[in-house]
């Protein structure tokens, strides 16, 4: 893997490759073959842990507003709705994850990509900016997940 920044989630080293950008809702964004792929950051995956089920509530292509509801996820630690990281055009989902979402855990920055979008990435953060975002958000998150991290 390329160079990565590290954020300590308790004793867990969450790694964030510097070859891509990040969204505030804990997704990464990276160019791949002319499209921008999005996936969960190590921070999100650590909170989710094993992903069991992924469902999308719309079909691509679709014009999305930022933070529009796009799907839901079930994991060993959480059940959550999922929202668009940026405004733009959703062009495709990673179909393989529907029958077996385990790639999200196994290869989160590669085969575990979630969807592709076209759009204005101005709101995306650099890896360094994302670290700052995590530091600011961590105190609150830490309190809610304390029990889970200690397991």
């Amino acid at each position: 893997m390329s160079d990565a920044l590290v954020f300590m989630m308790g004793k867990f080293e969450a790694r964030f490759p510097t070859d891509r950008q990040y969204a505030k809702n804990h997704m990464w964004a990276a160019e791949s073959g002319g499209v921008t792929r999005f996936g969960f950051s190590a921070y999100a995956v650590r909170l989710l842990q094993d992903v069991y089920f992924l469902d999308w509530t719309l079909d691509p292509p679709a014009e999305l507003a930022e933070r529009q509801l796009i799907g839901a996820i079930e994991s060993s630690k959480a059940e959550s709705d999922l929202f668009a990281p940026i405004a733009g055009r959703l062009t495709g989902f990673n179909a393989k994850l529907l029958s077996d979402p385990s790639a999200i855990n196994v290869d989160l920055y590669g085969d575990g990509w979630l969807f592709t979008m076209e759009g204005d990435g101005d709101g995306l953060l650099s890896p360094e900016e994302y670290m700052e975002h995590l530091k600011a958000a961590w105190k609150l998150a830490e309190r809610t997940i304390k029990g889970q991290m200690n397991e």
Binding site: V51, Y52, F53, S76, L98, D100, S102
Partner: peptide, 8 residues
């Protein structure tokens, strides 16, 4: 079910 949840 659609979920890979081991309990299910």
């Amino acid at each position: 079910g659609q979920s890979q949840n081991p309990a299910k």
